[in-house]
Simulated assay, not measured.
Amino acid sequence: MEIAAVEGSLSAIGYGLAAIGPGIGVGLVFAAYINSTARQPESSRMTLPYVWIGFAVIELLALLGIAFGFVFSGGA
């Protein structure tokens, strides 16, 4: 009986773990926006730019995670 070897890069696992944080963060940002809009609908136009800024910053963290995964693995 032969045991199969697992081949691949640990950076893929690292990025998968690094993507959990931004995924939760995006969910929290939009949940807070929906909650604030439900409580005070007239403020939805005022808070929407902050939602997009928060979304962009959180997604930047995800992109940094994948970039560092490539840098530390030595691949291009």
Score class of each variant (00 low, 15 high):
residue 19 A to I: 07
residue 70 F to C: 06
residue 41 P to I: 03
residue 4 A to G: 02
residue 35 N to R: 14
residue 59 E to G: 02
residue 10 L to Q: 12
residue 6 V to I: 14
residue 10 L to R: 09
residue 18 A to F: 05
residue 57 V to W: 00
residue 13 I to Q: 13
residue 74 G to R: 11
residue 6 V to P: 03
residue 52 W to C: 09
residue 40 Q to I: 08
residue 61 L to I: 13
residue 40 Q to S: 06
residue 61 L to V: 11
residue 56 A to Q: 14
residue 9 S to I: 11
residue 59 E to F: 02
residue 60 L to V: 12
residue 73 S to N: 10
residue 30 F to M: 07
residue 29 V to F: 01
residue 37 T to C: 10
residue 49 P to C: 11
residue 65 G to P: 03
residue 19 A to Q: 11
residue 57 V to C: 09
residue 16 G to D: 09
residue 37 T to K: 06
residue 67 A to Y: 06
residue 68 F to M: 09
residue 16 G to H: 03
residue 57 V to I: 12
residue 33 Y to E: 05
residue 65 G to F: 01
residue 15 Y to F: 13
residue 24 I to T: 11
residue 71 V to G: 12
residue 45 R to D: 09
residue 49 P to A: 04
residue 58 I to M: 01
residue 75 G to F: 07
residue 72 F to G: 15
residue 68 F to S: 04
residue 49 P to T: 12
residue 16 G to V: 13
residue 62 A to S: 04
residue 50 Y to W: 08
residue 67 A to K: 12
residue 55 F to M: 14
residue 38 A to P: 06
residue 14 G to C: 10
residue 37 T to D: 01
residue 54 G to D: 00
residue 27 G to T: 14
residue 50 Y to C: 09
residue 55 F to H: 10
residue 75 G to Q: 15
residue 55 F to S: 09
residue 13 I to P: 10
residue 1 M to E: 02
residue 5 A to V: 03
residue 50 Y to I: 12
residue 74 G to L: 01
residue 33 Y to H: 06
residue 24 I to N: 13
residue 66 I to S: 01
residue 4 A to D: 02
residue 73 S to K: 02
residue 43 S to N: 13
residue 5 A to Y: 04
residue 28 L to T: 14
residue 55 F to A: 12
residue 45 R to N: 11
residue 51 V to H: 01
residue 26 V to N: 01
residue 58 I to E: 00
residue 22 P to C: 04
residue 44 S to P: 02
residue 6 V to A: 08
residue 1 M to N: 10
residue 13 I to W: 15
residue 75 G to I: 07
residue 46 M to Y: 08
residue 54 G to P: 00
residue 14 G to I: 15
residue 59 E to W: 01
residue 40 Q to K: 07
